[in-house]
């Protein structure tokens, strides 16, 4: 009879909860951009408020991991798995914050007359969420090959970010009165770009979980944005 059934089952339960959190975050990200597209302040407000549930879920998962570490003394792969889940949990919560930030922009814009490069923003969101979805699948499956491939798609998100950046700057130049509002759109693009970076971090944890090796995989780090 295999030993440590309890530990294995409890790790599996936490992993399931992590996937639920991932779904909540994906839903929030796509919903936030959809609300922006439709300029639906009410929907944006709902997403803004639902972030509280994401935060609560994150704390519940963190608590469960810490209890398991304290009570079961996991070692080797079990330990790496729990440590990686702790990290992924935090990354997901931060992605949730980015979605909340986008929802807030929609609320601040209201029905103001400002051109929004929504096609590019929507593409960024679809791509970032797709990366996230597949990264979580790779994390659960400990699929190192996929985890090393996904971050390469970050370049496409960066390209779209640059397109949005230029379009928003053009709006600012052609109509300086829109600068404050256009600046909010910069934040939308920034948040989506950061989402993809967080996905890269999740992929790094997948590699760590499977191999015990900790290193940065291809993708932009937060500091790279700073001049």
């Amino acid at each position: 009879m295999p030993l440590r059934n309890t530990l294995t089952r409890q790790i599996g339960q936490i992993q399931d909860e992590l996937l639920v959190l991932g779904s909540m975050v994906e839903h929030a990200a796509l919903g936030a951009v959809d609300a922006l597209k439709r300029r639906d302040v009410k929907a944006a407000k709902a997403i803004f408020e639902e972030d509280q549930q994401i935060n609560e879920k994150r704390f519940a998962i963190e608590n469960a991991i810490l209890i398991l570490m304290a009570t079961q003394q996991p070692m080797a792969h079990d330990l790496r798995q729990l440590a990686a889940m702790l990290e992924v949990n935090t990354e997901l919560e931060r992605i949730g914050d980015y979605a909340k930030g986008i929802a807030k922009v929609t609320m601040l814009l209201g029905d103001a007359d400002i051109p929004i490069p929504i096609q590019e923003i929507d593409q960024m969101a679809q791509l970032a969420v797709s990366m996230l979805h597949r990264a979580l699948g790779a994390f659960v499956a400990e699929d190192v090959a996929t985890a090393l491939e996904i971050p390469k798609e970050d370049d496409k998100v960066d390209e779209l970010y640059n397109v949005v950046y230029r379009l928003v700057v053009q709006t600012m130049i052609s109509n300086p009165e829109t600068i404050d509002l256009a600046n909010l759109l910069m934040w939308v693009a920034h948040n989506l770009e950061r989402m993809a970076d967080r996905v890269t971090n999740i992929c790094e944890r997948t590699v760590f979980c499977a191999t015990g090796e900790l290193f940065e995989v291809n993708g932009m780090d937060e500091d790279d944005l700073n001049v």
């Binding site: 030993l3 440590r4 070692m75 080797a76 330990l79 790496r80 191999t211 015990g212």
Partner: peptide
């Protein structure tokens, strides 16, 4: 040894799945 053992038998023992 306790974070990334190289041998499967070590992994199984220290994670409590054998012994």
């Amino acid at each position: 040894i306790f974070t990334r053992p190289r041998d499967r038998r070590t992994e199984d023992y220290i994670t409590g799945r054998f012994g």
